[in-house]
């Protein structure tokens, strides 16, 4: 099928959302189902068909969601009602709305966006120290069955 001219294509908008908490790493499929469920329950089937939600990317603490142009407000309201993706409780904070994926990627690559992981050993246990947005550090115990989040205070010492 020949591709349509740019002027004949559907106008889209891309929404960049931050995943809260930052250490939750939901599966893209679970996020897609959560977003679709939120849109459908809030706006109904016809509204969801009009909005045409899609999850394009789900990585490094961000989710990129696509919708039709002029439905950003409905999409934002639906995203505010997302409370769970699969087994994870989470929230999606809208950060940016853009007409191009280029603008979204540029924002994702800004310094301070996303997180950096460092391996840390404390008291004989392995932790992942996750620095988010240059502001805070989460310590996540590396256990396969139940990852444990530890609150990091001054008493614990600094992660170098």
């Amino acid at each position: 099928m020949p591709s349509r001219l740019p002027s004949q294509r559907d106008r889209r908008r891309y929404l960049l959302c931050r995943v809260v908490p930052a250490w939750a790493e939901p599966e893209p499929r679970a996020v897609f189902h959560a977003v679709c469920e939120a849109v459908t329950t809030l706006w109904g089937d016809t509204g969801a068909a009009d909005i045409a939600p899609a999850v394009l990317d789900c990585s490094r603490g961000y989710v990129v969601v696509r919708c039709r142009r002029n439905t950003e407000a409905q999409m934002a309201a639906a995203l505010a009602t997302v409370t769970r993706a699969g087994e994870n409780r989470l929230a999606l904070r809208q950060v940016l709305t853009s007409g191009t994926l280029h603008g979204i990627r540029r924002r994702m690559q800004e310094p301070g966006a996303g997180w950096t992981d460092t391996q840390v050993m404390r008291d004989g246990r392995a932790f992942t120290a996750r620095r988010s947005a240059g502001q805070k550090v989460d310590l996540i115990a590396e256990e396969k069955k139940s990852p444990e989040l530890l609150f990091f205070t001054e008493d614990n010492g600094e992660v170098k």
Binding site: V20, P21, A76, L79, A80, T83, R89, L90, A91, R93, Q94
Partner: peptide, 8 residues
């Protein structure tokens, strides 16, 4: 997780 920004 229940907090919402003014925009939201």
């Amino acid at each position: 997780l229940d907090l919402r920004s003014p925009r939201e």
